[in-house]
Design a binder for these strands. Structure first.
Lengths: 352, 352
DNA sequence: CCTTACAGCTACAACGTTTTCGTGTTGATA
DNA sequence: TATCAACACGAAAACGTTGTAGCTGTAAGG
């Protein structure tokens, strides 16, 4: 086992000073050609690499981004991480991942654990519990300490920072319009409770579309699922709620704010003898593996998670590397969405 | 914006020495009660937290684990990460994620990027390209430098380190046996090329089961998909291969080495007019979202990714925190598997 | 022969901690 | 009164870097 050599051991071995070694390796003109050659050869031979931690301490920069998300077993979030990783790695940054599991407490702990010098900035999508508690002190304190935050998808209006979102209202309206255009007369929505910003906004878009088409909004057709935590664990609970929803509502079009709701609704609908898309047309939000491989393949809205990740990382790194960061106004980037036509809707859009 | 205070500023503010502050905060009995109280109060007020980087440099420990996986947009890997995170966080460790995208080069870069002091040890599942190139110098060099590695799922026999796997051979045999017990006469397998260890082993299990039941092995029934890279991008390619496979083979039972292959095969089968499980029974490997929400829900083998993650993290952290780490022999933990009975097989196992 | 210039190198401080080893004061004891 | 332990604190080194300032020797210029 050969330990990583430090400047010191190279210096001792070559009988020069530490500074000389450091400078030689950085090709400083203060050092003679001959010495440089010797040092470089030695460094290569022993595979010298500067110690990152020491550099971080000296430069007060870790070149590491902290990403905190509700759960990682979730296609949308992983595509976002992919995007973040892609851009960050390109710029020489590492990515450290923290999971909140939708828990406020874990989110706070994660933030504090990383805010002590481990990272240069955060990219975060807020936990549902945090949203429902409306307690954002950990976020504002972090920003106060000079650590920039970028929020994506689930954002908080009251916190001033860079944000990357999709236009949930417009996009949802577009989806519902598609159902209307496809001949649906009775359109329902399966959403989340209002404290989840994206759920609220998507419901708003749903209402807007109905209004625009002079269709009366029926409250009972708006189902707001209350899953504070990991939704994958309470499939039965979800199914039950959707089942009673179908009992109480006769809909021929359904807009779901995520693919799990959509898929589950399709499953329940099938159990009730409905065929898709003939009896019921469905559109989901967020394109993931489920949508693509569902039966029938689900028409969904693609949020372009990869791009959202890239944009988030770009925003953060730009701010980190911009010397006059404080003056720079906060930006909110709205990533475009697309409807991906598959087989749960009748009207197929000709344009890709 | 109030900057994080350091020991130095606290010391200056309170007119004591840095050492006194440090000791007071760690409740050393060298310091008088009165002083301790003052220091602690001040530290609390200004929300002092020791700088992680400085600690890392001093202790030569970062309390951070590097996890390198082929892709993150993959249910199995994310469950593993969840498991790693869970155990690691519990022990006060952070997790830094690197993606190889199945590329040898990116794997090497990631490893080197993190091996310079950023992390204490690695947990890795090797890229397909690395497996096919059979070039493992980056791994052995890392171990040589005293940085421990734990491999999971896709492991390399030639490299000596801790490993976490499932018994692919036995598990696969069990799955195939289930098909046989369910009345299948002509059983096929969709696997990967042999350089992917898990593909090879699962194929072996398939053969073993047939042998044990005195069923002749027909080479044409063994389909080895050659997807060196991200398989989600070449669904069409996959479908084509499976389509021709079905043209050439009439099977009533199918074992797929991952859920994507299984789902895709079901899709193709459906197109060919087969009904599942009546005409064709299917079992997949690796339980993910796809299996659970497929139509019909797919009978699969659960690899217990979360547990694999936990075991990997445990193995790594144990080694890191064990002072006489060098002597400790390398372990290979075999995580148990379960067949999850769903609706693509006929014979349902009574025991959960 | 004395400056001056420059090349080529070294010393030192700093980043924020912890820890070891002082050091001075106090009060008790011989 | 001299000695000593206990107490409360401070100085300094160390982790691995880098950058600035300083040092040394040689050669050129006056």
């Amino acid at each position: 086992m050969k330990q990583k050599p430090t400047l010191k051991v190279i210096a001792k071995e070559l009988d020069v000073s530490v500074s000389t070694v450091s400078k030689a390796l950085r090709d400083s003109k203060e050092i003679g050609e001959e010495t440089k050659r010797k040092v470089k050869a030695f460094a290569k031979l022993y595979n010298y690499r500067p110690n990152n931690i020491a550099l971080s301490l000296k430069n007060k920069k870790t070149k590491t981004l902290g990403v905190i998300i509700p759960e990682i077993v979730h296609h949308f979030f992983t595509t976002v991480i992919s995007g973040i990783e892609h851009y960050a790695n390109d710029k020489g940054y590492n990515v450290i991942v923290g999971l909140s599991n939708e828990s406020f407490k874990k989110e706070v702990i994660n933030l504090e654990m990383l805010a002590n010098g481990s990272i240069d900035g955060f990219i975060i999508s807020v936990a549902k519990e945090t949203l429902s508690f409306k307690d954002f002190h950990h976020l504002s304190e972090t920003i106060d300490q000079g650590i920039p935050i970028v929020m994506f998808d689930r954002v908080i209006d009251d916190i001033e920072c860079d944000k990357v979102i999709v236009d949930d209202v417009k996009t949802s309206a577009k989806a519902v319009q598609k159902l209307i255009d496809g001949g649906c007369k009775n359109i329902g929505i399966i959403s989340t409770k209002d404290y989840v910003s994206v759920g609220r906004l998507r419901t708003e878009g749903y209402k807007n579309a109905l209004n625009a088409n002079h269709i009366e909004i029926q409250k009972s057709r708006i189902l707001k699922i209350d899953d504070k935590f990991n939704s994958d664990d309470n499939i039965e609970f979800l199914e039950e709620q959707i089942y009673t929803y179908f009992e109480e509502n006769e809909v021929d079009g359904l807009f779901a704010v995520n693919e799990l709701y959509a898929i589950t609704a399709m499953k329940v609908a099938r159990q009730k003898g409905l065929t898709i898309p003939d009896d019921l047309q469905v559109i989901g939000f967020t394109d993931g593996v489920l949508s693509k491989h569902a039966f029938p393949p689900l028409t969904t809205i693609s949020q372009h998670g990869f791009e959202m990740g890239e944009e988030s990382a770009k925003l953060l790194i730009d701010r980190l590397e911009n010397p006059n960061e404080d003056e720079e106004p906060f930006k909110t980037i709205v990533v475009k969405t697309d409807i991906i036509d598959r087989e749960t809707t009748k009207l197929h859009n000709p344009k890709k």
